[in-house]
Design a protein around this nucleic acid. Sequence first.
RNA 1: GGUGCCGUACCCAAGUGGUAAGGGACAGGUCUGCAAAACCUCUAUGCACCGGUUCGAAUCCGGUCGGCACCUCCA
Length: 475
Amino acid sequence: MKVSIFNTMSRSIEQFEPLSADTVRMYCCGPTVYNFAHIGNLRTYVFEDILRKTLEYAGYRVEHVMNVTDVGHLTDDADDGIDKMVKSSQEMGKDVYEIARFYTDAFFKDIDELNIARPTVTCHATEHIGDMIELIKRLEKNGHTYFAGGNVYFSIDTFPQYGNLAKLNLEDLRSGARINVDPNKRNPKDFVLWFTNSKFERQAMLWDSPWGIGYPGWHIECSAMSMKYLGESFDIHCGGIDHIPVHHTNEIAQSEAATGKQWVSYWVHGEFLINDTGKMSKSKGSFLTLQLLKEKGFDPVDYRYFCLGGHYRSQLQFSWDSMQSARNARLNLFQRIVSLRKETKDQNIKNLGAAEKYVQLFENHMAQDMNAPRALAELWSMLKDPELAATEKLAGALRMDSILSLGLKNISIDTDEDEIPQEILDLVEERRIAKVQKNYARADQLRAIVEKAGYQLKDTPENSIVVRICNQMHK
RNA sequence: GGUGCCGUACCCAAGUGGUAAGGGACAGGUCUGCAAAACCUCUAUGCACCGGUUCGAAUCCGGUCGGCACCUCCA
């Protein structure tokens, strides 16, 4: 299986070829842990997981590195504002490291619940300050930095390819630059590598460095850590689309200026999740978390399914209606798997047989820039094809799920018949008698009572089955 | 103001020149005392609008209207 992927650098779909034959080295920008991740953030991690699993499906071993930014980033401009970590710690009255720990744990809980594979390496910025300092020293030696107003800056004029990724037109940008530019900058697009002097109200995290006590600029961690774990040149770097113009642009500049080599081969970016107010952000008051979805009765996997319904490079419109339809779809899908399991009990489900052609189509769609919506459609077509045997459908579905990761292999046929209270069973028995006596008015009345108690009755030719209504959504 | 993306059925959403995937919802059917569940079937001669290129356009070109994103921390 040959994988093709859209490379932001060339703005075109390219055939993927890793630097080394069978290993893919991939770096993903991780969370800044001063708050909970919202479902828009989470969409990006779902997409990265799909990318990783598609590559693994194609036979590659994937070294997947993700950073956790536990050093403060600034609230607004790179020269002003309150450190986000400090701000959050002030609000919660906790130590900055406690805050980072708390939100890091919350983040990985979300990741796990979404069936996103953990990175092979997770690296924390605060544990790599030394690596960042070494990188800045290297840049200094190569003449790409200058010291002004207490801070070390990267000079973009020493790096002619600056802005290639974002296709930035530097002339235009310069003329349209904001008013409050840091007067120490030689070029408005220069950025800080190391701060010893900032306008922070309070700075909780400080480290010693050749330039004085301070803290690193916010782009340097990704360069330093990715090169530490993946080498000076690696295959894939991904993140949200918003990182193209500033963060990734600056990362490229400082990385390649330091090594003199091409840093990353493929840049892969995921689009935003949008709701009726536009981009999801806390300031707009539309900060939806996975926790909130759960409180509303959704399973985290419903959200994963929802994400798979749209292509990763298209904006995806979130609404509660869409979320509901994703849940229904997922429930229907699970129901089909349960039926197949029952039908194929004790049978060998290893062979794809006639499901092969659907798996083939599925692979093609995933291999062609990860067209998950198309791939999902193949899953449905396969399940609905009357020509296929149940074992073949099940084998095909499980194969596809190695990328989709909806948890199909964990679905058991023991439909959790957890204890139904005796009083409910008594009502059911009373209804059975009423039915035998053809007292249907009484039977309907009893069913209404049972339903009100949260149970649903399903009459079959033999007997009546009772299920807890709210249990169904979680299976 | 500058740059880019998008506008497909009731909703979400694929589809970049060859005659509109898929899911949800709705409706109908089988089944049922009636339901529920399950299963089956159906839903765009048309892809914002206008004009053009072409044997052929949702797909290419021009224009109009509308939406979104980026240019500033942001997945």
